[in-house]
Design a protein around this nucleic acid. Structure first.
Lengths: 207, 207, 207, 207
DNA sequence: GATGAATGAGGGTTCATTCAT
DNA sequence: TATGAATGAACCCTCATTCAT
């Protein structure tokens, strides 16, 4: 085991600075979009020099990709949140509560539009998005199958199809909320209700 | 309104060339996005010189805006299609048929993602998009109210909210179809069914 | 034959501007070398905007290559000059006279050092240099064979080898003259004499 | 000169590391040229950190200069080799033998092209090159004068001029060999022969 | 002495836009 | 009107060099 000479590498500091850059990038991408945001703006926003940014992300595209991976992980967390609840109704209610508490969630979601649009052109990003989405759809399907076995979801419904529809509904809703004047909390609840009405069995009399 | 005198220019030729440029722009924007598509590419695609393009659209942004207006008109046509059908069920079925016949509709939808993302940054475009969307929502609400009065839509449903949800569902669905491998026709039918299940009264036994 | 509309292309003006840019590039490359000379400097020297330069040479490398081709053509002209003279002695004398009249020829030759050094790394440029050099060597060989048949060059000498040596001598001489303080005209004459002494038969008594 | 006290640093280790860096630099400069080779590449090649390189050479230019001094010393050794031989013919024969044994000598010569080109722009380097060259020319002149007194070199020849020509011939030859396909050993012998034919008296019948 | 981290100053190239014919 | 030619303003990225440990 050779004794390492010189200044020792500090992985924590690196990780922190990396996150700092991604945060700055998120702000700028949100404000200007992937293409219009410049590396100079991003590094200024992150409080870093441009050259330093390039030591963490060898390419602007790499930065975009890192941010996307970071971003898509959050969506998966939402699915898990629903899954951990006792029932679909309860899970959706939690979503409603959570999103009601984050009034600028719609704002953040704008990035997803950008991401999907970008995925349509950049095959590398398309791969990242597809992979993340596949994981999310899979989690959703598992969740729905479980609820179906528990008798909460109608037996004739196809979990694969429903999963896609539910994700589409939320994607579309938050996409629209970014520019329509509709009330975010209200529309989120309405979406939950729509899902219940469309796919759930009527509640047991004992509920 | 008579053709103004003293203008030797040929309005028909102008309109035709304008459309030709917009068509080229659509191709390029679809391929590369608003920012990455260059005026050089667009004019090449349209078979026009760059300088000539600038005689029809004084700015790239103007071209984008013209294309967006052109584009948003199509969506409104879909709402009218539903409205002209005898019932919500029938209208949605027509949508299903129509979209099944255009297998690359999802592809074209990518432009809408770009448009919305752009609207979030460009206030002029935001105005255009909002206005077009407001018209569409209004048409949708009117349609739903009529169906509600006809007893087809559940009386407790709020047409304003439902309209948003339905539009969100389709937006989100076609956004997802642009990169997920799901079957477009099948998912379109499933969306129709979801709408029926969530908002419609059960069909009369006589139906 | 379709009638060309719009501003007609002007090939002469283009050729002139192209030459103008190459001239500016030569000045800058001479002053700073291929790598250190910037496109900004070159275009300033040529009295052109940077963007305009890029309409004539899509890449800095392309500009370098064009200049090299331009440059190597001159050397070939020198060989032809010797060939057109009645004898090797007469031809070399003409070279001496010509170079004596251009006191900064050594200065210009510095570019050839740069060119060869660059050829060692850039395969595209290597191809250009090799091709041009092959033409020059071939012309030299032909010349020497003719002089050999005329009895002026020693019969046992191999024109292929001599050609290389003569070119090497001049290359090396002008390379050295670029930094040594030696007298250009004198050294040029000495080189001619060396060639005569090494390869020529003694002059006929009738000469 | 006693080793200065109060300097705990290990001079041997320093010298070794210095040589290690110069070696890495030579490799990189040969591969890419002075300007295109980066300090990062050089230190990687030398197995050293960039910051460490800067503790040995405060500037990239200083590194270049050190390497050049290192390099020019070798040429002088060749002149001495000839001088130590009994005759010019014998000395040139030894050169032929030596260079025949180093088939990639031409490759290394590429650095000299780079050096001369650089000298044309960097006055500091020009001084180094001029000084080294002056030493070499002086050694060459001394050598030739001795051979002239020994009756081997023609009496009417000017050693100052011949020295320049001989150096020019070798410089040019190895410059050309770097990219022409000619055979190095054969051309080296031919150059020796050319020198003999041009400047030497015919051998004594007793030789 | 040695290393990892950071940066200011460009460098080549592109692009929306304008000018001249 | 329509085109070829031209340009200023950036943009992404690199690199020699310095700082901190």
């Amino acid at each position: 085991m050779p004794i390492p000479l010189g200044r020792p590498a500090n992985p924590e500091a690196r990780a922190q600075r990396r996150a700092q850059i991604i945060k700055g990038a998120r702000t700028c991408f949100l404000r200007k979009g992937f293409h219009a945001a410049t590396t100079a703006e991003i590094s200024a926003e992150a409080g870093v020099s441009v050259a330093n940014l390039y030591q963490y992300f060898p390419t602007k595209d790499d930065l975009v990709q890192a941010l996307i991976e970071d971003d898509l992980a959050e969506d998966l967390a939402l699915v898990r949140l629903v899954d951990e609840a006792g029932s679909l109704r309860e899970g959706l209610a939690r979503i409603d509560t959570l999103l009601a508490a984050e009034p600028d969630y719609a704002e953040q979601t704008r990035l997803k539009l950008e991401i999907i649009a970008e995925a349509a052109r950049n095959s590398q990003i398309a791969a990242v998005v597809s992979a993340a989405d596949a994981r999310m759809v899979a989690a959703m399907i598992t969740l729905l199958e479980r609820r179906q076995q528990a008798g909460e979801v109608r037996p004739e419904a196809d979990p694969v199809v429903i999963a896609e529809l539910i994700l589409a509904l939320y994607d579309g809703l938050y996409g629209r909320l970014a520019f329509s004047g509709a009330n975010q909390a209200r529309m989120t609840r309405a979406a939950s209700q729509m899902i219940i009405d469309a796919f759930a069995n009527p509640p047991h009399p004992s509920d």
